[in-house]
């Protein structure tokens, strides 16, 4: 299928230079490990609403945060190619536009998945119970969600092509409240009513809840269903907005 082929072409083009500078990926792993080492010990004194090891609760949230922050700002990497004309070069080829976006998003997401797997492997000896298949499903959900967010980020980069500051401002003022309202780091059940209500309007909340459910091995739950739906909707909307922005902008 042309779409899959184009996705692979785009992914491969972007991945090759990344693999050449693999040390960035290694460096990227250090940061989440730092969070785990310095933050999790604090969590033991906070009721997370779940029995057992706080890692089981914290790790999925942290991986969601990792994906959100990386994908929200990945449009930045497109700016250089937008200005130079090399993005335009691909738009002049018959390649499918959504495939170009998906390929590029996957390049951002692939190192994150590697990081996630390593994090899981590293913390397993400290009490994280492994549920391999549900966790894998959790990563797939994140992938779908990440493609959507990355596409939105690309769309934002295209729309604010001539104004780098605008990109930075918008992407951060979206990502930070999403994260804080998503109950990524602390449980929303502890929040005052108004904050809890607000978090219910945050798509990220549903994804985080789905991931937490999957990380405890529970696949057939309402949280997982809502989370999966949310990830699918975000991906569809992202690709739609991305494709339309490319067409409208007429780079």
């Amino acid at each position: 299928m042309a779409f899959i082929q184009d996705t692979l072409i785009s992914f491969r083009r972007e991945m090759t230079p990344t693999l050449r500078s693999w040390y960035y990926i290694v460096f990227g792993i250090l940061q989440p490990l730092l969070y785990l080492g310095l933050f999790v010990p604090l969590l033991t004194s906070v009721p997370t609403g779940t029995e057992g090891n706080p890692l089981q609760w914290f790790v999925p949230g942290m991986i969601v945060m990792l994906v959100l922050f990386t994908t929200v700002s990945c449009g930045w990497a497109l700016t250089e190619e937008l200005m130079s004309g090399s993005f335009e070069r691909f738009l002049a080829t018959p390649m499918s536009r959504p495939a170009i976006l998906v390929g590029r998003s996957l390049k951002e997401l692939a190192p994150l998945l590697v990081q996630a797997v390593i994090i899981i492997a590293v913390v397993a000896p400290f009490g994280l119970v492994l549920h391999l298949l549900p966790m894998l499903l959790g990563l797939v959900l994140l992938l779908i969600f990440g493609i959507g967010v990355a596409s939105l980020s690309y769309a934002l980069a295209i729309a604010s092509k001539h104004d780098g500051g605008l990109f930075y401002m918008v992407s951060h003022s979206v990502a930070l409240p999403l994260m804080l309202l998503g109950g990524v780091l602390l449980p929303m059940d502890l929040a005052p009513d108004w904050l809890y209500t607000a978090s219910r309007f945050n798509p990220l909340t549903y994804l985080v809840e789905a991931e937490r459910s999957l990380f405890t091995g529970a696949v057939f739950t309402q949280s997982v269903l809502y989370g999966a739906l949310m990830a699918g909707v975000v991906a569809l909307v992202g690709l739609l907005v991305g494709t339309l922005t490319i067409r409208r902008a007429g780079l």
């Binding site: 230079p17 200005m83 130079s84 004309g85 090399s86 070069r89 002049a92 018959p94």
Partner: peptide, 18 residues
Amino acid sequence: RQLIGYVGQGTGSGPYHR
């Protein structure tokens, strides 16, 4: 797009690619 080749005024190649 299938029929044409396009060499734009800008630089088509990506900086980090070979």
